[in-house]
């Protein structure tokens, strides 16, 4: 009997804890699926965590939101930025990781030391001079300005380097004897053998790019180039502000991340230290 009681207490506690973590998300989705007037009425009752009782009203908010704002454009922008950054990040960082793992070259130690030192530079504090660089390059208010600074990443270079080091040199030497050049070896041997590393870097780059807010906010002025994260604060400050529409754009911007986290969950822990603390 006392064992059973203990179990009940344990489960009640766990369920309460779980509620603290998920009720905001449920409220977000539920509020996006009901008329604006229902939100204050439902507040505090269980109905506040449920969509409208009239199913035909569920997606009305989304229709209103899409007619007021060019949400398709924002989605397209975010997807484009994330895909280009992800592919660029995989290729550029893998190339650098390959050089550090399989080549003996002049200045290797110095260069690697310098890059490791850059790893501890708190990049977010440099936003102002990063902005002046973009300004001096004349790329402000272009999509290029959003993408370029996100590609090279010392942490990812390091990750690739360690992965490539484990690939036996004998394999590379034997293909070299067959007359393959470095470029062929990289594309045909190294990359195909490194799918886990590619998946890890790809997933993390995608998430970093999707969630990027401050930098696109600074370099972009045309709203048709905004990614979703910038669009969110734009929609949240463009009167009239409707709670249900704000919750709808929050939900829309989160769905792709849910998919990425589900599909790529096993690669995320390997990216430990790269990102992903509440305070990113």
């Amino acid at each position: 009997m006392s064992r059973k009681f203990k179990k009940v207490v344990e489960y009640t506690f766990l369920i309460l804890l779980a509620c603290i973590f998920i009720f905001p998300l449920i409220w977000m989705v539920a509020s996006s699926m009901k008329p604006e007037a229902n939100i204050p009425v439902d507040m505090g009752s269980i109905q506040s965590l449920l969509p409208s009782i009239v199913p035909s009203e569920w997606f009305q908010t989304y229709q209103e939101l899409f007619s007021r704002f060019d949400v398709f454009q924002y989605i397209f922008n975010s997807v484009t930025y994330a895909i280009v950054v992800t592919l660029g990040s995989i290729v550029v960082n893998a190339m650098a990781g390959y050089a550090f793992s399989k080549f003996d070259f002049i200045g290797k130690k110095v260069l690697f030391g310098l890059l490791i030192a850059l790893l501890i530079v708190p990049a977010e504090t440099l936003i102002i001079t990063q902005f002046t660089v973009a300004h001096d390059l004349g790329i402000l208010n272009t999509r290029l300005a959003v993408i370029l600074p996100m590609i090279a990443n010392m942490f990812f270079i390091y990750l690739f380097r360690n992965f490539f080091k484990a690939i036996p040199d004998e394999i590379i030497e034997s293909v070299k004897l067959d007359g393959a050049n470095y470029w062929t070896i990289f594309w045909k041997i190294i990359l195909p053998m490194s799918k886990p590393a590619i998946a890890t870097v790809g997933t993390l780059s995608f998430i970093l790019s999707w969630n990027d807010y401050l930098w696109p906010l600074m370099v972009l002025t045309d709203s048709e180039k905004f990614p979703l994260q910038v669009a969110i604060t734009n929609i949240n400050t463009t009167p009239p502000v409707y709670t249900n529409q704000v919750m709808a754009i929050l939900t829309i911007s989160t769905i792709p991340l849910i998919i990425v986290y589900i599909v790529a969950q096993k690669y995320l822990l390997q990216g430990l230290g790269g990102s992903g603390t509440g305070i990113k």
């Binding site: 999707w210 969110i232 986290y261």
Partner: peptide
């Protein structure tokens, strides 16, 4: 909550 961005 980890899945949500800081802005969200």
């Amino acid at each position: 909550p980890v899945v949500l961005s800081l802005v969200v």
